[in-house]
């Protein structure tokens, strides 16, 4: 019986191998509409996400645009060695890490606090108004946001300087945007202002999904508002919050560069330049394309390692993992 069934399976297996080509043809024939719907877009995806990886070869060459990838000589790891001996690289890496950690922490704390406060509002219309209004900056372009920040901090009649002067805190207008050491703070506050409302969405959803009976039971036991927040809402938020925090750690070197580009100026370069902007600068500014690509590779590899190890961490913690 056993032997017969394995034999049968074997025969079937061989048959499958033989008809493999035919089967594929049959599948293509019967699912050609699904193929028509997907293949063109998969090709675009592959073209713009995978084909650029070919350009990584440049990092191991002494690339010059005139010779192209096929004509440029190979130099091994020279570009990486140059990159890791470049002081500017470490400065830029520092800027990237500092700004993403600052934004990560402030938005994390801010979103949870705002979600808890909003949850205490029993007036539905007021709550909805706060949500609607605080979501707006998320949808407004960074160009506009930067414009607002620069206008409001302007030493030439800017709102903030006007207030500080009127209240007598300062007597001379402050040139906020020209002070490198203030850039990180201004950048962090700008990003917080833009994304604060939007980032509460997920926490509000989690709080509203918590069991109302727990709150009622606590109330019967005489728990006050703060005790309910401390013992029910916050522990309820914690799993989601840790998960999100850990996941965003994975993208810590992968932050955007738009906000830095728009808020920064030549006086604050040492503080605003992040990895991507430096890669652009070193490539198009000084023609060292190979080093720019080496920088991109470094960034991609580090963030991949971070994402994978973070995923492992989450798995160990028993949470649903990313993959």
């Amino acid at each position: 019986m056993n032997i017969r069934s394995t034999l049968q399976q074997d025969v079937q297996g061989q048959a499958r191998v033989r008809t493999g080509g035919k089967l594929l043809g049959k599948k293509i024939k019967s699912q050609y509409q699904l193929l028509l719907m997907s293949i063109p877009f998969v090709i675009i995806l592959i073209l713009f996400s995978y084909v650029p990886l070919w350009g990584w070869i440049m990092a191991f060459q002494k690339y010059s645009p005139g010779k192209g990838i096929s004509g440029s000589p190979f130099v091994g790891f020279d570009n990486f060695i140059k990159l890791f001996h470049d002081d500017r690289f470490f400065l830029v890496l520092r800027n990237t890490l500092v700004m993403s950690i600052l934004s990560l922490v402030t938005s994390f704390v801010g979103a949870i606090t705002l979600a808890l406060l909003l949850n205490e509002v029993k007036h539905v219309l007021f709550k909805r108004a706060v949500q609607t209004i605080t979501y707006i900056p998320h949808f407004v372009s960074m160009v506009v946001i930067a414009n607002i920040v620069i206008t409001f901090l302007s030493p030439d009649g800017g709102f903030v300087n006007q207030i500080l002067m009127a209240t007598g805190i300062i007597h001379e207008p402050i040139y906020f945007m020209s002070k490198g050491e203030w850039f990180w703070g201004i950048h962090t506050l700008t990003v917080l202002w833009k994304e604060l409302g939007w980032s509460t969405i997920i926490y509000l959803a989690v709080i509203s999904g918590l069991n109302p009976e727990t709150y009622e039971a606590a109330e019967v036991d005489g728990a006050g508002r703060f005790q309910k927040i401390w013992h029910i809402s916050i522990p309820g938020l914690l799993p989601t919050a840790t998960m999100l925090l850990i996941l965003s750690l994975g993208s810590i070197v992968n932050t955007g560069y738009e906000s830095q580009f728009l808020l920064g100026n030549s006086l604050t370069t040492d503080f605003y330049e992040v990895l991507d902007l430096y890669a652009l600068n070193i490539s198009f500014g000084s023609g060292q394309y190979s080093i720019g690509v080496a920088l991109s590779i470094f960034k991609c590899v580090v963030s991949l390692i971070l994402v994978l190890s973070v995923n492992k961490l989450v798995k160990k913690a028993g949470q649903a993992s990313l993959f």
Binding site: P52, L53, A279, Y289
Partner: peptide
């Protein structure tokens, strides 16, 4: 995974 700004530009 992303090729980065410069390879994308060249493509």
């Amino acid at each position: 995974i992303s090729g980065g700004l410069i390879p994308t530009y060249i493509l």
